[in-house]
């Protein structure tokens, strides 16, 4: 599986687990703010969980304005 697809899948799995959603209920193109209904504090928590999971740092300014899982995975991929 290409690396980006694998990263995207891991991001989706992590979000589904953390927000207690059915496996497969999120897709790469979903707007996570709309789909998950998260506020600014939950956004930071999700950022921490992603950083801890992938063992990277993802500066806020790189994910500012990002709202879909695929673009988020691309940002993560650039730090792996």
């Amino acid at each position: 599986m290409p690396a980006l697809e694998k990263t995207t899948r891991e991001v989706l799995d992590l979000a589904e687990t953390h927000f207690k959603l059915q496996p497969g209920s999120l897709s790469a193109e979903d707007d996570f703010f709309k789909k998950l209904g998260i506020d600014s504090m939950q956004t930071l928590e999700l950022l921490s969980r992603l950083e801890n999971h992938f063992g990277i740092e993802l500066p806020d300014y790189e994910v500012q304005g990002v709202s879909d899982f695929k673009t988020l995975a691309e940002r993560i991929q650039s730090r792996l």
Binding site: L47, S48, E51, N52, E57, P59, D60, Y61
Partner: peptide, 10 residues
Amino acid sequence: LTGRSVNAAR
């Protein structure tokens, strides 16, 4: 100078 937030591990 970047204003970014850092996690606890960092």
